[in-house]
């Protein structure tokens, strides 16, 4: 149906023919090649362009742009801001990730209600585009090539990190799953997808710096809030509320563990 998806299917099929052990290795390499081939012409750029426009265009009841929004490095500083999030914001007295902060700015600067600022957190096709997705694409792209440097100094940041760590190992739901069930061992995979070991720096760095990403199979740019939301769905946990403390805590834990790595997103994934 979709040429890109079809290409992935062919590559996957090619991997299955070889011996099992070698097949896994080859498939991983082939998927890498597929990602590389797609990186040039990543449709995430379309979201970045729309996000930049949304960032700079006056909107909301107060008719102001988001250019005065403080993402942690001072009002209006976008470059490199994402590499230092989540962090504590004194004006809100809360640790915030990027998406929570964007909602905050749209409410306090532009005068939107919480409902308006969170009404379409994740995009679903042309009719239901998400401003959040676009803004996240723009802001994160401005941190491309910047080293992750998430602070852990303020007591509330430490509190969030500790909570996130606890949640990562917390088993629950009908399958008695935790994040660690799938993400705490080396060299594991689901079907042909590698599962990063998020308890080690290398795994956390690889995983965290690759989000947000354009998902070819969904035709959408997916943010880190979406990623966690979908992890919860896969674990059959209760739905992770958008910009909830639970989502920020897990993000804090994973982002901090990725410190020192170069931020690479928005990337493209199958």
């Amino acid at each position: 149906m979709r040429t890109r998806a079809l290409y992935a299917g062919l590559l996957a099929a090619a991997g299955i023919v070889a011996a099992p052990q070698a097949a896994a290795q080859d498939a991983v390499k082939e998927i890498e090649k597929y990602r590389e081939a797609l990186q040039d012409g990543n449709p995430a750029e379309l979201w970045e362009a729309r996000g930049e426009d949304l960032w700079k265009r006056p909107a909301g009841p107060r008719k102001v742009s988001l250019e005065k929004c403080d993402l942690g490095l001072g009002p209006g500083v976008v470059k490199g801001a994402y590499a230092q999030l989540p962090r504590y914001f004194a004006d809100a007295d809360r640790v915030m990730d990027l998406e929570t902060r964007l909602v905050h700015c749209r409410m306090t600067l532009q005068g939107l209600t919480r409902e308006e600022a969170t009404k379409q957190p994740f995009g679903a096709g042309t009719d239901r585009k998400s401003d959040n997705d676009a803004l996240v694409a723009y802001v994160t792209a401005e941190s491309k090539g910047v080293k992750m440097n998430v602070p852990l100094a303020h007591p509330k940041e430490k509190e969030m990190y500790a909570l996130g760590e606890k949640m990562f190992y917390f088993r629950g739901g009908p399958y008695d799953f935790s994040c660690a069930t799938c993400h705490a061992a080396d060299n594991t995979r689901i079907r042909l997808q590698d599962l990063p070991n998020l308890t080690k720096p290398a795994g956390a760095q690889l995983a965290y710096t690759g989000w947000p990403a354009y998902r070819v199979s969904q035709g959408e740019l997916r943010t880190f809030q979406w990623r966690l939301n979908d992890c919860f769905r896969q674990q059959r946990f209760p739905e992770l509320a958008f910009t909830s403390d639970a989502s920020i805590a897990l993000t804090s834990f994973l982002a901090r563990n990725a410190n020192g790595a170069e931020f690479k997103a928005p990337t493209i994934k199958r």
């Binding site: 149906m1 979709r2 040429t3 890109r4 040039d40 012409g41 449709p43 035709g219």
Partner: peptide
């Protein structure tokens, strides 16, 4: 219709 969503052309 066989061309992907958000197409890239070079």
């Amino acid at each position: 219709p066989a061309v992907s969503k958000n197409p890239f052309l070079s």
